[in-house]
């Protein structure tokens, strides 16, 4: 007799526990407000990334098309993957001194792991992390970017 009672107890206990789980899923079924999906391409207008989000490395330019990069090469040295290449040239400035000037700051987005070391180690704060994250391209060569804008020069007062 006891075993029959235990048998029935087991069954009812199991059904009750199963129902407990069904209550959770049932609750969400009837509460569409709990939906957390973001409708991504549609919400582009309202989608703002956090200001520290590491989307890509950028070189901020001011309104006079000036940047702060002195072509020192520290970012290139610190990059663990070799995703930064700096091409510089020697130019004679007004004072008649020979000086290293940035001609191209090449950034291979495809190799970058967003470790932030280049931004952190840059002595003149020339680099920053951009928030753009839509990097898909049809051709891999398009991932090799030149960060300094054409015709840009070194900002005055940056050494």
């Amino acid at each position: 007799m006891r075993s029959i009672i235990n048998y029935l107890k087991e069954i009812f206990g199991a059904v009750a526990a199963l129902f407990k789980g069904m209550r959770v899923t049932g609750y969400y079924f009837f509460h569409p407000k709990e939906i957390v999906t973001q409708q991504y391409p549609e919400n582009r207008a309202t989608l703002t990334m956090f200001d520290r989000f590491k989307g890509e490395v950028i070189m901020p330019h001011n309104e006079n098309n000036e940047h702060k990069c002195t072509a020192c090469g520290i970012c290139e040295m610190n990059c663990p993957n070799g995703s930064i290449e700096i091409i510089s040239e020697m130019k004679v400035n007004e004072e008649g001194k020979k000086k290293k000037v940035l001609s191209k700051h090449i950034y291979h987005l495809g190799m970058c792991t967003f470790c932030n070391l280049c931004v952190k180690t840059c002595p003149s704060n020339a680099l920053a992390m951009g928030q753009d994250f839509e990097h898909a391209v049809f051709d891999r060569s398009k991932l090799n970017k030149v960060l300094n804008k054409p015709g840009s020069v070194l900002m005055k007062g940056t050494e």
């Binding site: 969400y28 079924f29 957390v36 999906t37």
Partner: peptide, 13 residues
């Protein structure tokens, strides 16, 4: 759709 709503999703849309 049913499973999407149970899982806090929208499902095919």
């Amino acid at each position: 759709k049913v499973c999407a709503f149970m899982q806090c999703r929208v499902g095919p849309n």
